[in-house]
Design a protein around this nucleic acid. Structure first.
Length: 861
RNA sequence: GCCGGGAUGGCGAAAUCGGCAGACGCAUCGGACUUAAAAUCCGAAGAGCCGAAAGGCUCGUGUGGGUUCAAGUCCCACUCCCGGUACCA
């Protein structure tokens, strides 16, 4: 509805508005109109295939299609969309895609609950969420859409799996899983509630050993760790979390031989320690209850076996509940002894509930004097405590244990060794080095590095996931499916409500196959892949989503990668982001891509909370995006998620807050509908510096100051809340000038520029309203690709500056000086100010400080 | 325990490099318009004290110290809240 007449000075007639009070901001009408237009124009938000252009890849984490968007999504996508729109307007070739992390357990749960096939349920959810996204006006290139549960996608998971297998990065090993005897299937950790099955609340979950597929992420442990130092565009918090997760620790392996009189000859226990320097203080060896040697040591002692079982049960329970650190330490003496290879001393072998089989070697040497946990344990069971390191004092060598002993346990490392035979007097650092070399030279140990990071268990005994492309042949063993046979399709019409094991295992037509090697009968793998596989590389697929010869074309991926800005919740700081980094390195090593890291910049937005708590059904504090869109419109909902606070912090949702933003958007609408309809017919002034009225000059200045502020924010700190504040202030200025506008004191070209600027700056945050007003002004260009307004520093400059004048730190007066006044002139003006003269009362200032543009500080005695 | 982040009016927050604390918004109060209300537009407002008013003074950014002409911001010591994580040897 642009202006109907030629006379741009009579806007009211154009929209039949008799009086400004009748201009109503009807968000629903405007937004529905534009949502429909955008959907009809599929190229609008499309990435350009021209590789000569400067690219910008902005990515928000793809959602799991649970059915509806929540406010956290809205916040995440509002940030990404604002950035994408800003970068388009900066002239970049922007890739801004979206997709669906659509495999996974909830679809199976829903299938059981509603008797709907997982695929149907998932696709219906995707349809609904896509509708919501379109209604919210997010500018995605839907031609790049990726849906991970489609064979076109997951066939490449299978392809990658074969590549992993070829390189020895995929392997099978026995591993403990949660097993529900009632369901006769494996449960994910999150399905174990208080040690019982989530579906059978009285059925205790068992631990079972199963052959499982693993991906050798540990092969890249060191590179994953080193790479973090270079990821300067990632939050330090995330980098720290990943460092801790990888958990590199330097130490030594030391073999303790079993005392021959007791144990099977030749057997030994290898312990891992980071403090080999304290080995003369070792007064016992402690084993994890699951340590394989435990059964040998106590095989003929049922009483002890039962006790060890008890220790194991305690450990498991604590792990399930999640407070391993809080359980009380318990242990049992096995009756056996081991020999400390450094001093040939005999030390007792214990089994303890605080030793974990899956870290280090599952065995430690216990040094009570110099380790908190060992100390606590030794005190409890009356084990010897022997001090072997002393705090260093001015480089003196402590003579012996006659010296005062430190407070135990003493874990400091600025120390010297005592009671350690030939090693006495060495510093801890040197002892660590020399003693592990010594162990290596004598064949009973070596320096080593261990990582907390474990290999990635990717097997899931589930239906709704990518089938693992392997077959089992009695003759040839484990055989990979040839690439030419991919994809292994996930069968449909599977009754997954049947309890009792993996659904795929119950389908003979799926399981029974022929061996690719010998052609004989063989069985297919029935495990499916963890969904983290899907999300480890989906963003590469976005660059070339329809490719059926390769996961993606290298040159295309190399053009777009690395991702310039990745945006998502901090809850993915570890798993998703480590797996993605691993996958990137792996893809680089098989020659698929050139970069080593997926994203140069990562932004983790805060949660959306309400009444100080995470939104949840049980608290009844959920705010639905659909409701907000219905009541206030998408622009208000989006803008409020940005206005409520800085994006990296939690956002405390307040209904009154979104109402305020809605009011503001109405204010913008009314201003432009009153002053800007059809104004594009007025030529923009070629030069803004002509002689104009003070009112006009002020507006011009505020416009340029606002552009400056917002541009700086979008390029730097990303405090969108202050961007919105700036636009609000700008609009307040425009309103204050209404009577000057009505009187014709504001030149038309400027009036056009003021409103153009307003709409352009608004467009990343409230795209619907911006588009509507752009059209109402009679602009015909595509707003999305319109150039972001530039600010002119000369026009942004103030003519006069107000200085605060302090005397001894207290503001006593204000003076106004021309903007170009020199420091001396400002000082003089301040000292001559009548109020200051009075306060000084003849005293001579000791010092006068002039802070340019801000303040004058006068110091008197 | 350890690692992050935070604490500023009645509320969400701002203050980007040590320089006028509280921008912007909400709620509140007042005015204009209206028969009235809603909507809209305009205005007031950290707390306390003095003043008829203009205006002025004191206090004030979790607590206690410190540095500085000047501290929400820097330093030292602490309290509480939120998130993550853990017998990792």
């Amino acid at each position: 509805m642009p202006s109907s007449g030629d006379d741009v000075h009579v806007p009211r007639a154009a929209v039949e508005i008799r009086d400004r009070d009748e201009i109503r901001y009807e968000a629903q009408k405007i937004e529905e109109k534009w949502a429909a237009r955008w959907q009809a124009d599929s190229a609008l938000y499309g990435a350009d295939s021209d590789r000569a252009k400067r690219k910008y890849y902005v990515l928000e984490m793809l959602p799991y299609p649970s059915g509806v968007l929540h406010m956290g999504h809205v916040r995440n996508y509002s940030i990404g969309d604002a950035l994408a729109r800003f970068m388009w307007m900066q002239g970049y070739n922007v890739l801004h895609p979206m997709g669906w992390d659509s495999f996974g357990l909830p679809a199976e749960n829903a299938a059981i609950k509603n008797n709907t096939p997982p695929k149907q349920w998932t696709l219906a959810n995707i349809a609904n969420m896509k509708k919501q996204m379109n209604r919210l006006g997010f500018g995605y290139d839907w031609s790049k859409e990726v849906t991970t549960c489609f064979p076109e996608y997951y066939r490449w998971n299978q392809w990658f799996f074969l590549k992993l297998w070829e390189r020895g990065l995929a392997y099978r090993k026995k591993s403990k899983v949660n097993w529900c005897p009632e369901c006769a299937t494996v449960l994910a950790n999150e399905q174990v509630v208080n040690g019982c099955c989530w579906r059978h609340e009285t059925t205790v979950v068992e631990q079972r050993e199963l052959e499982q597929w693993f991906v050798r992420t540990t092969a890249y442990a060191q590179e994953l760790l080193d790479g973090l130092d270079k990821l300067e565009g990632w939050p330090e918090k995330v980098r720290t979390m990943q460092r801790n997760w990888i958990g590199r620790s330097e130490g030594a392996l030391v073999d303790f031989k079993l005392d021959l009189a007791q144990g099977p000859a030749g057997d030994k226990i290898t312990v891992f320690t980071t403090r080999v320097d304290t080995i003369y203080g070792a007064t016992s060896v402690q084993l994890a209850p699951e340590h394989p040697i435990v059964t040998d040591l106590i095989a003929n002692n049922p009483e002890l076996l039962a006790k060890v079982e008890g220790l194991l049960a305690e450990q498991r329970k604590a792990r399930e509940v999640g407070d391993v650190g809080a359980i009380e330490k318990h242990g049992v003496f096995t009756g056996a002894y081991a020999i400390n290879p450094f001093n040939d001393e005999k030390v007792p072998i214990w089994v303890a509930n605080y030793i974990l089989m899956d870290y280090g070697t599952g065995a430690i040497m216990s040094v009570p004097a110099h380790d908190d946990r060992d100390y606590e344990f030794a005190k409890k069971y009356g084990l010897d405590i022997r001090v072997v390191v002393m705090p260093r004092r001015q480089g003196e060598i402590p003579a012996s244990d006659e010296e005062e002993t430190p407070v135990l346990p003493y874990t400091g490392t600025e120390s010297l060794l005592i009671n350690s035979g030939p090693w006495n007097g060495l510093s801890v650092d040197r002892a660590l080095e020399r003693m592990s070399s010594y162990a290596q030279e004598h064949g009973f140990g070596k320096a080593t590095v261990t990582y907390r990071l474990k290999d990635w268990g990717v097997s899931r005994q589930r239906y709704w996931g990518t089938p693992i492309p392997m077959v089992y042949c009695d003759k040839d063993g484990v055989v990979p499916v040839p690439e030419s046979q991919l994809p292994i399709l996930l069968p449909e019409n599977v009754d997954i409500t049947l309890e009792g094991g993996s659904p795929l295992a119950k389908l003979p037509e799926f399981v029974n196959t022929t061996c690719p090697k010998c052609g004989g009968p063989a069985r297919r793998e029935t495990d499916t892949m963890d969904t983290f596989v899907d999300s480890s590389w989906y963003f590469y697929r976005y660059t070339d989503p329809k490719n059926d010869r390769a996961p993606f074309e290298k040159t295309t991926a190399d053009y777009w990668f690395p991702i310039d800005q990745y945006i998502g919740g901090v809850e993915h700081a570890i798993l998703h982001l480590i797996y993605s980094r691993f996958w990137t390195k792996f893809m680089r090593d098989i020659g698929l891509i050139s970069s080593s890291e997926p994203a140069t910049r990562l932004f983790t937005q805060g949660m959306v909370i309400k009444d100080g708590a995470k939104m949840s059904k049980s608290l009844g504090n959920i705010v639905s995006p659909d409701d907000m869109v219905a009541r206030y419109g998408a622009d208000s909902a989006r803008m409020y998620t940005l206005f409520g606070g800085p994006p990296d912090r939690d956002l405390d949702w307040q209904d009154a807050g979104i109402n305020g933003v809605y009011g503001f958007l109405g204010r913008v609408y009314r201003f432009v509908m009153r002053n800007g309809i059809g104004i594009s017919k007025v030529a923009l002034s070629s030069d803004g510096t002509g002689a104009i009225s003070p009112e006009a000059r002020r507006l011009q200045r505020v416009l340029h100051q606002t552009i400056k502020r917002i541009t700086n924010e979008l390029q730097g700190r990303w405090h969108f809340n202050t961007c919105v504040s700036s636009i609000m202030s700008y609009v307040n200025e425009l309103y204050a000038a209404q009577s000057a506008i009505d009187k014709g004191l504001i030149p038309k070209p400027l009036l056009r520029e003021l409103q153009r600027g307003l709409v352009l700056m608004l467009s990343p945050f409230a795209p619907f309203l911006a588009h509507e007003l752009w059209e109402q002004m009679g602009e015909t260009s595509k707003l999305v690709r319109e150039k972001w307004p530039a600010f002119d520093p000369a026009l942004a400059k103030e003519d006069e500056i107000e200085y605060a004048v302090q005397v001894n730190g207290k503001v006593r007066s204000h003076i106004t000086t021309p903007a170009d006044a020199s420091e001396d002139q400002v000082r003089e003006a301040a000292l001559n100010d009548p109020k200051i003269v009075t306060i000084l009362a003849g005293r001579t200032p000791v010092k006068v400080i002039v802070v340019k543009g801000k303040l004058v500080g006068v110091v008197v005695k």
